[in-house]
Design a binder for these strands. Sequence first.
DNA 1: CGCGACAATATAAGGCGCTTATATAGCATG
DNA 2: CATGCTATATAAGCGCCTTATATTGTCGCG
Lengths: 154, 154
Amino acid sequence: MDIDRLQGREDVAELLEQLSVLTLRHLTDHRELSFTAAATLARLDRAGPARLTALAAAEGVTQPSMTQLVQRLERQGLVTRVSDPDDGRVALIAVTDEGRALLAAHKQARRDRLTDLLATLSEAQAASLIAALPAVRQLLRNAARSRTPSGTTS
Amino acid sequence: MDIDRLQGREDVAELLEQLSVLTLRHLTDHRELSFTAAATLARLDRAGPARLTALAAAEGVTQPSMTQLVQRLERQGLVTRVSDPDDGRVALIAVTDEGRALLAAHKQARRDRLTDLLATLSEAQAASLIAALPAVRQLLRNAARSRTPSGTTS
DNA sequence: CGCGACAATATAAGGCGCTTATATAGCATG
DNA sequence: CATGCTATATAAGCGCCTTATATTGTCGCG
């Protein structure tokens, strides 16, 4: 324990990448939903409809990329575009029921595989992971805040 | 704290994906090195030269994908191909000094950004993250083992 | 020694996902 | 109502992945 704590901060970045690779490559199904597609749908699901440029900024891609992605998602029936009556330029994107269903299935599949993996850990190790979750949540909040100087409320 | 522990396992998968998105999208520079490229270089760096098909299997991509990737990496001078004198068919891939340097720079950049993020956490939260590292390490080992029924040692 | 079977890698064709640069359409203001 | 700003779309191009197929080297066998 002490050894790990001493060199801990040094290794966090390295482990974080390997963990990300594991999650995205081996824990997630990419045949139906790409990286950005899944993240975008998840965002629409938890934060509600958003305009295209806001989505692009939130996901860290350019506006043309998001335009293309939305076009593909629309073709698949996972999102719909709603014209804003107040402003004819904006395209409000909303997730459809079909999109929500696919997202849920996706999430469930990942959770299942992760459950199998977590079962290989000892009780103490699993507990240490769970104990770290609040810190991870805080980390994600801080990261999101540091990227949005001014709030982009819908 | 208790609330988080109670619903902990339910949220692990969700947090893991958001963490991956954060790491790969906002903590990592993709201009010089792609996802698979970075993972492949890192593997070559820590495990030594490997044959193309073994690399493809380890990174979870098809053999043609790895062929293309190696060709691009070779063009950039990051890896070299060594013909195996014993078996003329195999192409052994090795990371070059230039590749190692780029990998180190990459790792350092990610570590720097992560350090900034970790600084926003309280001591207790950071400690809980560091305390979870051994479990993460074990998780990665178990995941790797579960994907390789028979050891593919070089 | 030459011939088929197999193993390792390469090539071809196609689609997604990303980029920069540029075009279009609606809004707002003088 | 012309100008400029904002929101989105289009164009062109490359990286990265896929499946299907071709090439090349090795090996065993008669």
